[in-house]
Design a protein around this nucleic acid. Structure first.
Length: 419
RNA sequence: GUGGAUGUAGCUCAGUGGCAGAGCACCGGGUUGUGGUCCCGGGGGUCGUGGGUUCAAAACCCAUCAUCCACCCCA
């Protein structure tokens, strides 16, 4: 064994053939579920102008401030590997004037995102998200529908019982006012704050509520509450949102500490949590961003979306074996290879996963290979069979085998497999 | 970005200064043409990497890289 000259860059992972089938299954389930809700796929570039992310995610956020893979290309353009999916989707929505063609647009995406963070479990520098966005729809019906869709997806892949934590960030003016009030409340007792919170006063006052340091946490008790700032319309939206989720059987709890790390969120925001062996894991997050389309040059357009962390989802799912082979052909001698090739072709055209051992070793070695691949049936093309124009069909499960005419062998296996 | 733990065979790990190991996996064999169980055998590691201490380093020291945990933040 040689020693590797290169290794994968930090925080990035190879999805090897022994694991990729799990990804395929999760992605297929996602496409299927969002298709039922009439979402269509959008495929955006991985690279965008750096300014797009600065404008949409916000200059003060951690993502823009210190986590982006940005560079100047040979032509002098400032480019960034996308750290999330929404910005690019909104950019495309505006750039292609989609609003002019249809009043409501629903699209989904699946793909890699890049953030230069310190990696750990469930946190990678290249990770994958499956997301969905809707444009041109006011709250709260579509917001609830997106959360239900998300729950349906999780349920389908075996992560039932997800819990939704939601909050209302206030829209536009109320949100700014609330940040101001929080900043004043905590700022008045600045000296008792931890160093992180002193920084938060400036960068993200909403995060002050989430501090776990005791002296800071104590101040939360008499801190102004979002609910006190929200107007009647906001509160009734929240209530309708809640009851729509309830009606769909989705467990949802209001959580006034819930804050999103991206500046474009307005109004209803949420996170989705599932129980895993190591505790509860947030596998998805989303919310409404009613100002973003206009912020990127489009007309005022209500919009909402979410993103699911696929690694986090997969980390919660059990290992599963890859697809096994339906039919394996044993080729004991070169004289049998032509017959083997045509049998394999016939089998594959009939939709069977079929293979042989390209090393052409002993029959025992080839049988071991067939067994390792989990083959249901093995066709044995021995000298005896070749001369008789037959092939031995062995049932690997039962262990028995029968001689069948070469021309009927694949059909025989298809019948036994019930296909 | 900060603090901590870990890095020995493909995988899980034992080995605390004196010849690099186990289990599983992989490959082969157990007479004539047949897998899974069992028995026997085999290949594979410059002990993450680079320095240092020592007669002698997988082990001790320093650095570096990677993974994991906590923080920060987030999917």
């Amino acid at each position: 064994m040689g020693k590797p000259v290169y290794q994968k860059v930090r925080g990035m992972h190879d999805i090897l053939p022994d694991a990729s089938h799990r990804w395929e299954a999760v992605e297929a389930a996602y496409r299927e579920v969002v298709g039922l809700y009439n979402y269509r796929e959008i495929r955006n570039p991985l690279l965008e102008d750096t300014g797009l992310f600065q404008r949409s995610i916000g200059d003060d956020t951690d993502i823009v401030g210190k986590e982006m893979y940005s560079f100047t290309d040979a032509g002098g353009d400032e480019l960034t590997l996308r750290p999330e999916g929404t910005a690019g989707v909104v950019r495309a929505y505006v750039e292609h004037s989609i609003a002019a063609v249809e009043a409501v647009t629903k699209c989904y995406y699946i793909g890699p995102m890049f953030r230069r963070e310190r990696p750990q479990k469930g946190r990678y520098r290249q990770f994958h998200q499956a997301g969905a966005e809707i444009f041109g729809a006011p709250p709260p019906v579509v917001d609830a529908e997106q959360v239900v869709m998300l729950a349906e997806f999780l349920d389908r892949i075996g992560l039932g019982g997800a819990v939704v934590l939601f909050n209302h960030l206030g829209s536009g003016e109320t949100r700014r006012r609330y940040r101001q009030l929080l900043s004043e409340h905590y700022g008045a007792r600045r000296s008792e704050l931890c160093t992180d919170c002193v920084r938060r006063l400036e960068t993200n006052p909403l995060r002050l509520l989430d501090c776990k340091v005791e002296s800071c946490a104590k101040m939360k008790g008499d801190a102004p509450k979002m609910r006190e700032i929200l107007d009647g319309a906001d509160l009734s939206l929240l209530e309708r949102f809640r009851s729509l989720l309830h009606a769909a059987g989705v467990e949802a709890r209001e959580d006034d500490r819930l804050v999103r790390g991206l500046d474009y969120y307005t109004g209803i925001v949420y996170e989705v949590e599932v129980e895993a062996e190591r505790g509860s894991v947030v596998v998805a997050g989303g919310g409404r961003y009613d100002d973003l389309v206009a912020g990127l040059g489009g007309s005022e357009t209500p919009a909402a979306g979410f993103a699911i962390g696929l690694e986090r989802v997969l980390d919660c799912l059990p290992e599963s074996p890859p697809a096994s082979v339906d039919l394996f052909v044993l080729v004991p001698s070169p004289e049998a290879e032509a017959t083997a090739a045509s049998l394999l072709l016939e089998a594959r055209r009939a939709g069977l996963r079929a293979d042989l051992d390209p090393r052409a070793g002993s029959m025992k070695a080839q049988m071991k290979r067939a067994n390792k691949l989990g083959s249901a049936y093995v066709l044995i093309l021995g000298q005896k069979e070749l001369e008789a124009g037959t092939v031995a069909v062995k049932d690997m499960r039962e262990g028995g085998q029968v001689d069948v005419d070469v021309a009927a062998a694949v059909k025989h296996v298809l019948e036994r497999l019930g296909r």
